[in-house]
């Protein structure tokens, strides 16, 4: 499509929504209904106009699919016949599924921990150094890049040439310079998972960093100064004052990154597509959505597994929301 037809499509698409809100509200105001009984009517219609479109989208794209996916997990390949727990029984026996669960657990432990840790350390270092804000920008930058783009960047880092050739991947060049044999990093089972996790850590450290930076500024300066005057070392201040003070923030960052990691798909799909024992749930699910014409039953079971991982966070969020509403 040419740039003009694309631009026109975009314009029409957006204008439809602007027009809806404008004209529906305009019409409502035009037929001004001023008697008390009618005002109540007007208010209800207004509420419907305001929340209607969003509610329909929310229902069609989130609420209905959640229940439909759970229903489909008990149905066969095409979603026609009820098969009970058959799909779940298949999953438990499937070696790819087992591998995915193990890998996902590995991701869940390593990535949030290291991203949070690096973010916290860097935020602390950068706050005390005059070129800290430049450093923060640089470390934050991968947040703007797509996972696929990051995949290409790191695939190039991990590039492998035979032992005789000149290495063009930085990691192998370093390995060779240090006197080791070059390795095809992404094809070494178990270890390759860590090389993939490194990409996610590289990206998410930036997120942790900016949030910690903002939170660090809320620590009262007097507390820190008092500790310094008392002769506490910087390391001690970090462990005894900063970490306890940031407890809430650490928890929040942890959950955000955990949510992302549970859904990790792009990196695996672009780098290895689950080969060499790097399979994860989201990639396996995508695979089953299309493998052999698609199997909605198995795909739904896999999606449901990801949802189960999310449920503790969901419950915690709702709990906190309720606490907030009380105040």
């Amino acid at each position: 499509m040419s740039i003009f037809s694309l631009a026109l499509t975009v314009l029409i698409g957006v204008l439809v929504f602007v027009a809806f809100f404008h004209f529906s509200n305009f019409l409502l105001d035009y037929f001004q209904l001023k008697t008390p009984k009618k005002i109540a009517w007007e208010n209800s219609i207004r509420v419907v106009i305001f929340i209607g479109p969003a509610f329909i989208v929310l229902f069609v794209f989130i609420i209905y699919p959640v229940f439909e996916t759970i229903r489909l997990s008990f149905y066969d390949k095409l979603g026609d016949n009820f098969v009970g727990l058959y799909n779940y029984a298949w999953a438990i026996k499937d070696p790819d599924f087992k591998r995915s669960i193990i890998n996902n657990l590995g991701w869940l432990i390593v990535v949030p921990t290291l991203s949070t840790f690096f973010g916290l350390v860097i935020a602390n270092l950068a706050d005390r150094i005059w070129w800290g804000s430049i450093a923060k920008s640089i470390i934050f930058m991968p947040m703007a890049i797509s996972f696929v783009g990051a995949g290409v960047i790191w695939k190039f880092m991990y590039d492998y040439r035979g032992p005789g050739d000149q290495q063009i991947g930085l990691l192998n060049a370093i390995a060779v310079a240090l006197g080791f044999e070059p390795q095809a990093w992404l094809t070494i089972p178990i270890w390759n998972n860590f090389f993939l996790m490194a990409i996610m850590i590289w990206i998410q450290t930036g997120l942790a960093l900016v949030i910690f930076s903002a939170a660090l500024r809320t620590i009262p300066k007097e507390t820190l100064d008092a500790a310094r005057i008392d002769g506490a070392s910087e390391l001690k201040i970090f462990w005894k004052i900063i970490i306890p003070y940031l407890e809430q923030t650490i928890l929040v960052i942890w959950t955000i990154i955990t949510l992302l990691v549970l859904k990790v798909f792009d990196i695996i799909y672009a780098m290895t597509n689950g080969q060499w024992q790097t399979e994860v749930l989201a990639n396996l699910m995508y695979d089953w959505m299309f493998r052999g014409g698609g199997d909605t039953g198995r795909g739904s079971v896999l999606a449901f597994c990801i949802l189960i991982g999310v449920i503790p966070i969901l419950a915690w969020n709702l709990y906190r929301h309720k606490q907030d509403q009380k105040v």
Partner: peptide
Amino acid sequence: DILLATIIASLVVPLQMSLIPILT
């Protein structure tokens, strides 16, 4: 309030849950 709680819950629902039904 229920709508608000639904939004909070939807925040964390993985988008994988929606793919198959929406595609259908």
